[in-house]
Design a protein around this nucleic acid. Structure first.
Lengths: 145, 145
DNA sequence: CTAGGTGCAAACTATTTGCAGGCGG
DNA sequence: CCGCCTGCAAATAGTTTGCACCTAG
């Protein structure tokens, strides 16, 4: 928790009960979630909590690299906690299709091939997004595979 | 054009003036576009044209592998014509940040590394999406770089 | 104390749906 | 001539905004 608090401070954001609760939610669940899912859970314990507050805070945390943002099914956006040592160091994430657990994947899949791609296409690569889907150990077992 | 017409037939979709116009749009422009952009252009030449019709047709063409669908900025979806020999053969696309041109990238960036990823994470990979952004030859020059 | 954070209500906007009539095969 | 296709209007739903009040630092 402390490292995320520190990241909020570095981003000039105040440490409020709402922000701590959102962080605690992601640390506890370890899964990705929509702002609405987070809101439904937290407003029970927090009493009053506005959905826009959750949207605002999750987006801000995404800007600071605390949360990863991924396009899920059905035109919705999901956020997951990034546990990488240094979120600034480029890496990818893999998400379990069974339980929505998020895990960091070190290194970059595109980096080593970028020269080849540029040579073949004539494009100069400026960026990329990679979304990996999979099944975690527990869900492989649960799936009977 | 003929190959896309054939793909529509194989998908049990009728060949209508609206569908031909949408295909012609993408063949001519060679860029990705939102349903709204396509609609604004085509309703001039087609007279009456409903925006829902464009949404419906573009989504159907996406299902058939005729159009690629990518998440753009600002929570909107863009579609681009897939010119790959066989769209069923797995490949990626790179989109020019300057002019929005779409180009196929043969091969798979994840495939050769999937074993490593699985070994390192313990996940079993079930799928992935890769979005490459870049600058095409013309836009590199226009950019002065 | 003061700038940033929050709740609420309302707005916004991309996308979808229902349905009556139209047209491709 | 049958069933898919289309336009229109209206609904849906995720997300954002305006604003008065509140609270962390």
């Amino acid at each position: 928790m402390q490292r995320y608090i520190r990241m909020l401070r570095e981003g000039k954001l105040k440490i409020t009960p709402r922000r701590e609760a959102i962080l605690a939610y992601f640390i506890k669940e370890g899964k990705y979630a929509t702002p609405e899912q987070v809101w439904k859970k937290l407003r029970i314990s927090l009493g009053r909590l506005g959905l826009p507050t959750v949207y605002r805070n999750m987006e801000e945390m995404h800007q600071l690299g605390i949360l990863v943002k991924v396009e899920g099914v059905e035109n919705r956006f999901y956020y997951g906690l990034c546990r990488a040592e240094d979120p600034q160091v480029h890496h990818h994430h893999i998400i379990c299709q069974g339980c929505h657990k998020v895990r960091e994947v070190e290194g970059c899949l595109v980096g080593s091939l970028s020269k080849q791609i540029e040579a073949k296409t004539g494009f100069k690569l400026t960026g990329h997004t990679v979304h990996l889907q999979g099944l975690c150990q527990s869900c492989i077992i649960a799936d009977g595979g």
